[in-house]
């Protein structure tokens, strides 16, 4: 009843600040279709590199974590709507995004690469798939499409792989580490290889936690937590667990 009354009354209220001074709960927005960064295991439990980092952060900062799932392109609107406090979903720091939200210090860095069948020559008319709302979309539309390739957007990364395996796509464009651990290493990824890493200004590699613009309190809190994770070795341990032998932190 209270919720219904609130729902009706809320229409009257407009401009007020959204930020708490003290956090007892941090709500992280996540897209659970991006193994090994964030995915659901067989029991339906949310897990992954970033999920573990988030949980470790909360433990470090003495707050409790709440994970809110969403499609990738719905994360920033959710942040701006106040549904979540932070975005921990392999979100790369780009100029366009920095105009709308703030970012914490770096979580990890990972370049972009294509995944395709060996021997595929990409040319005009070939279909390339990517995750809607990602930096790969910007690159695909501004570079690949002008080269004559057919670019197709998908609501989540898993669907990109499904169509790649099915043969509707000739290649897919995504984060290199995600492709390695979330597809190529799995049985469905057999028969595919990773193309060369793609360097472009449109696709920076640094990924950080997204925070609502102007929320300095949370930024300081999260930066402090991240630094502590590096200091006490938790970051190194998780990095080894998910990406053995790979250095994910660039220190930018």
């Amino acid at each position: 009843m209270k919720k219904i009354c609130l729902f009706l009354l809320m229409l009257l209220f407009l401009n007020t600040s959204l930020f708490a001074k003290e956090y007892t709960v941090i709500r992280f927005g996540v897209d659970p279709n991006y193994a090994p960064f964030a995915y659901k295991n067989n029991a339906g439990k949310l897990t992954g590199f970033e999920v573990d980092i988030g949980n470790a952060l909360c433990k470090q900062l003495n707050v409790s974590c709440r994970w809110v799932e969403s499609d990738f392109d719905g994360l920033i609107p959710s942040l701006n709507a106040g549904k979540i406090d932070a975005i921990l979903a392999s979100m790369t720091v780009t100029d366009a995004r920095e105009q709308v939200i703030d970012f914490s210090s770096e979580v990890f860095s990972s370049p972009t690469a294509m995944v395709l069948r060996p021997g595929t020559e990409l040319g005009k008319g070939m279909a390339v798939g990517y995750l809607q709302g990602s930096i790969q979309e910007t690159y695909a539309r501004q570079v690949l499409a002008t080269q004559g390739m057919r670019v197709v957007a998908y609501a989540d990364q898993e669907q990109v792989y499904a169509d790649l395996v099915a043969g509707r796509l000739h290649a897919s464009l995504q984060d290199a580490q995600q492709a390695q651990s979330g597809f190529l290493r799995l049985p469905q990824g057999a028969g595919f290889v990773m193309g060369p890493l793609i360097e472009s200004d449109l696709m920076p590699s640094k990924s950080a936690i997204g925070i609502a613009k102007g929320n300095h309190a949370l930024k300081t809190l999260l930066d402090k937590g991240l630094a502590a994770l590096h200091a006490d070795g938790t970051y190194a341990r998780l990095q080894d667990q998910y990406f053995p032998g790979v250095n994910m932190y660039s220190g930018q």
Binding site: D73, I76, P77, V100, Q132, E137
Partner: peptide
Amino acid sequence: DANAATFLT
């Protein structure tokens, strides 16, 4: 698409 690019939901 427009929402993802401009964040004007």
